[in-house]
Design a protein around this nucleic acid. Structure first.
Lengths: 175, 175
DNA sequence: AGTGAATAGTTGTAAGCGCAAGTATATAGG
DNA sequence: CCTATATACTTGCGCTTACAACTATTCACT
């Protein structure tokens, strides 16, 4: 590849005229990412300031809190959290365990596995931070839309998620 | 706060019954984050595998490519990119400059400032990666929805974004 | 039972990011 | 003109993350 920057004027014009750069699809993903990032930033600031909890910590607390028994296999938790890998989850649970919010429990049926379980302290943190967090969600997302719009948004997002989240054991042309 | 983990059974029941944990608002943000993260992961893998470009690199290329003149002030770029801070942008542009995809240009009107500008190599990378990327967007987002649903989704996301993105110089109760 | 492949989870290593503090320039007020 | 404050960007530092390689256990097949 030629590495020398030459006069760029000719190329610039070609670029501006390229119809692909104006494609609506770019706008569509851009909107999804921007809205998500802005909401995430807003909510995280609230959680950090009021409860000292970052987004990943909060997501672990919420997912365990909403699960009967308040515990999940590490692999289930890792799969459910789209924004982290198994490796990242190991250290995340390390830190949360050190902070006393969750604990690891051995799995009797599969001795390779481990559960992450909410501790009483973790449950207390979760319940303490929840009301203000819900109010924030209202302020930045739910309250911005009519209930009809919100329902439509959720339906669309669910379609997208389900397309990408559950490609396990599904139809796969060949075999 | 008592730090000793006791038998957690009593607390667990209280938690399960807490109506706040079942609140629909949690589901709503959860869907937004999951859909966004899954789409982001999918698109990033495509970009990395085919073009060696990570998401932040791609976003810089796209934003510069879609700007007349193919350059933006560092501060404008940082503000537009919801998922990075000015500090992060400095190093991101450092690396992209080292890779030859962008270059810094001094700003005549404000000598504190700097432009980030696309190089010919950056423009070439952008155009080379674009067709496959658009196809990926189709596969994971646009093609999943009817055109009516897509329009509704975009409208909702725009409402959310505009609420959070432009709180500059707007109404602010007191003064 | 016994061997090979798959799965659950963890760890070494390196890269990327944000916060807070620093430097340089611009702007406002006396 | 001169000082004080604000803005644009960068840098020191520590934390978090992903990728790839590793260990332990289970499953499939003979």
């Amino acid at each position: 590849m030629a590495a020398e920057p030459a006069t760029a004027d000719a190329v610039e014009d070609a670029l501006v005229d390229d119809p692909l750069l104006a494609d609506d699809r770019i706008t569509a993903v851009g909107l999804l990412f921007e809205a998500s990032a802005l909401v995430a930033r807003e909510l995280e600031h609230g959680l950090v300031d009021r409860a000292g909890l970052t987004s990943p910590w909060w997501e672990v607390l919420i997912r365990l809190g909403r699960t009967p028994g308040h515990r999940l296999r590490m692999s289930e938790l890792a799969h459910a959290m789209a924004s982290i890998t198994p490796s990242g989850l190991t250290r995340l649970v390390d830190r949360m365990e050190e902070a006393g919010l969750v604990e690891r429990q051995t799995c009797a049926e599969d001795r390779r596995g481990a559960f992450a379980a909410l501790t009483p302290a973790g449950q207390a943190q979760l319940l303490a931070a929840l009301p203000d967090h819900l109010a924030d969600i209202d302020r930045v997302l739910v309250g911005v839309l009519s209930s009809r719009d919100l329902a439509a948004l959720e339906r669309c997002l669910r379609l997208v998620r389900d397309r990408l989240q559950a490609p396990v054991g599904e139809a796969d042309a060949g075999h």
